[in-house]
């Protein structure tokens, strides 16, 4: 029987959640035995190739590209998981939600202390994704099946959740795995 497929991506996150996934240490060998990876920064595949069993989303949605990727994941993944506080709540990037979008653009492209921009205009290059008016948690844009809190969720948390789902069980995480202080 073909191995279950897993895909991962980082939207508006810091890659800390992916680092945490790598922190499962030698269990990574077991993981590779258990699953095949579709699109993921781990293998640098840029587009989902087929049906995926479990998708892991790090980071919330701050721009049009994030949204497009999230849609791609939702369309292809049977189970979609928001991993970490950015994906579940918007997290640190959502601090910009207090600042009007115009000011964000101006700080980034016109007035910031390190900005050199002789055109004096906000760039309109299609390579630079348009920002959404606010940073949104993933479940506001698409239906999300599971939420794993933490910044980042610990390696043990990720491992426990993944293994349970791969074995067809509901993940039941003990208090220690969800407690952060």
């Amino acid at each position: 029987m073909a191995k279950p497929k897993v895909a991962t991506t980082s939207l508006c996150g810091c890659f800390g959640c992916h680092m945490s996934l790598l922190d499962i240490d030698d269990r990574i060998l077991k993981l590779v035995e258990l699953v095949d990876f579709d699109r993921s920064p781990i293998n640098d595949i840029k587009k989902i190739e087929g049906q995926v069993d479990i998708g892991l989303i790090e980071g919330g949605c701050c721009n049009e590209e994030n949204l497009a990727v999230l849609h791609e994941f939702r369309k292809h993944c049977k189970i979609l998981i928001s991993v970490g506080d950015c994906a579940t709540n918007g997290g640190i990037p959502a601090m910009r939600n207090m600042v009007p979008l115009g000011e964000c653009y101006e700080e980034a492209f016109l007035n910031g202390p390190t900005v050199v921009n002789p055109t004096g205009r906000i760039p309109d290059d299609p390579e630079i994704p348009l920002l959404l008016d606010k940073v949104y948690p993933c479940h506001e844009a698409v239906k999300i099946d599971y939420h794993l809190p933490g910044c980042p969720p610990s390696a043990d948390t990720l491992w426990a959740a993944l293994v349970a789902l791969l074995e067809g069980r509901e993940p039941e995480l003990p208090y220690e795995l969800l407690k952060y202080d």
Binding site: E64, G102, Y105, I122, P123, L130, L132, D133, Y136
Partner: peptide, 10 residues
């Protein structure tokens, strides 16, 4: 949600 950015970037 994209309207403002479209306006700002043109």
């Amino acid at each position: 949600k994209l309207a403002e950015a479209q306006r700002l970037t043109g």
